[in-house]
Design a protein around this nucleic acid. Structure first.
Lengths: 173, 173
DNA sequence: CGATATATGTCAATAATGCTGACGTATTTA
DNA sequence: TAAATACGTCAGCATTATTGACATATATCG
């Protein structure tokens, strides 16, 4: 007891701080939307579906499952509910008729807007409060935290802003 | 009533990207620990309790509730379970005997280590892959995302490592 | 001292999210 | 034609979180 098993203390402290930044930022980021959802008898899962379907109109169910990282049974309840209540439309795929391509109805877009307005304002304020370099740093660290295969989602196509740092990122142990 | 159906599109794209960075980084950050927890019949809530009690030895139940942002009834089951199974100790407060000060047992510390080892490695790698400036930027943005009152947790007291970088962080508008 | 507030715990009911496992159907591909 | 794929669904179970009501011990105030 006199001798606490310490990892390298200064480094460990920095790491723990980042863990906590992630925890608290995520916690505060989601609470407001959760409150709005509760009033409509929806949950966070509905928000995620509406967000990503809005973001990627015409996406397949599989693509959505991969993004959410859940099973089709779990998605089923939520998606089925959104479809039945007129927030999401399913259209049979043209090239592959087994697919159900997803898109938001006007009602769905309305809900998406309602849910993310506060979140976008929050992020927007955070962006405006820092320098462009800070924003780049934020992105670099977030990309470093996620899995390699998830990272492709940001690094491949056009979406990414940037950053020289990316080149330094190692593949991950 | 409301006017702009569209925010300025380029800006909106950057904001959405940050929202997604937050979502995917958090998702990937938690999955491994969740798997370990599942094997022991524990959930993410147990992880959070063990993490924060380990971080703030001797903390009160109220302090933990405030950090977690949940109700005491929700905490009760999880905390009670951890206490009964010997991961967490409760000691009656000295100055205020109504308080139950929380701390980890050796078994609790072991569990905490098991759960966060992978997470710390993940964050550590992300830190090493970027410049000190990027890290500062990451912190600034994360602090900007969280609520004002949550931010005090990082900006006020000692808990912070320290780092010359800290000095550059602005108090926030 | 007595009233009241605080710190904590507990019981009960309810809801949302997620999982595994087992089937079923339509459609595409080999 | 057989196998693989995309999707859906039913059933059962665990975890996390909620509200509301009530209980106990201790502190503090008038």
């Amino acid at each position: 007891m006199v001798k606490p098993p310490r990892p390298s203390p200064p480094d460990d402290e920095q790491i723990r701080q980042s863990i906590e930044l992630l925890f608290f930022a995520y916690r505060d980021f989601t609470t407001r939307a959760d409150e709005i959802l509760a009033k409509q008898n929806f949950g966070r899962a509905h928000h995620r579906v509406v967000y990503f379907v809005g973001r990627h109109t015409g996406m397949t169910v599989s693509a959505l499952l991969e993004i959410l990282g859940i099973t089709k049974q779990s998605l089923s309840r939520v998606l089925g509910q959104l479809v039945r209540e007129g927030y999401v439309l399913q259209k049979t795929g043209i090239h592959d008729r087994r697919q159900r391509l997803l898109e938001l109805t006007p009602k769905g877009r309305e809900l998406e807007r309602l849910l993310t307005t506060e979140q976008r304002a929050r992020i927007s304020a955070a962006h405006k409060a820092v320098s462009a370099a800070s924003l780049t740093g934020f992105r670099a660290v977030m990309l470093g935290i996620m899995n390699d295969d998830t990272r492709h989602r940001f690094t491949s196509s056009e979406a990414i802003t940037d950053s020289p740092n990316r080149a330094k990122m190692r593949p991950w142990p």
